[in-house]
Simulated assay, not measured.
Amino acid sequence: MEYDNHFVKVEVDRSVALITLDRPKANAVDLALYDELRRTFHRLGKDDRVRAAVFTGAGKVFCGGNDVTDFVDLDFEGATEYLAHVRLTFNAMYDCPVPIVGAINGGAVGTGIVLATLCDVRIASERAVFALPEIDVGVLGGARHVMRLAGQGMTRMMMYTGRRIDAEEALHAKIVDRVVPHDDLMSTAMELAGEIAEKSPPAIRLAKQGLNRCETMSLKEGYEFECTLTAAVRQTAEASEGALAFLEKRRPRYADRG
Score class of each variant (00 low, 15 high):
E2H: 13
D4K: 13
F7P: 01
T20I: 07
R23K: 15
N27D: 07
V29C: 00
A32V: 12
Y34Q: 14
Y34E: 11
H42M: 12
R43K: 06
R43D: 03
A53R: 06
A53T: 06
F55Q: 04
C63Q: 00
D67N: 13
A79T: 09
A79E: 00
Y82A: 11
R87N: 09
L88C: 09
N91D: 14
A92P: 10
P97F: 04
P99L: 04
V101D: 03
G102L: 08
G102S: 07
I123K: 12
A128Y: 03
F130Y: 13
P133Q: 05
E134P: 00
E134L: 15
D136N: 11
G138H: 10
R144M: 09
R144E: 12
R148C: 08
G151S: 11
G153Q: 09
M157K: 15
G162C: 05
R163M: 01
R164A: 11
I165F: 01
D166Y: 02
E168V: 11
I175T: 12
P181E: 07
T188Q: 02
T188G: 05
L192E: 02
K199F: 12
I204H: 02
L206N: 00
K208E: 02
G210S: 11
N212A: 10
E215L: 07
L219M: 08
K220P: 07
K220H: 05
G222E: 02
G222N: 10
A231D: 11
E238W: 06
S240N: 13
A243K: 08
F246L: 13
L247K: 08
R251K: 08
R251S: 07
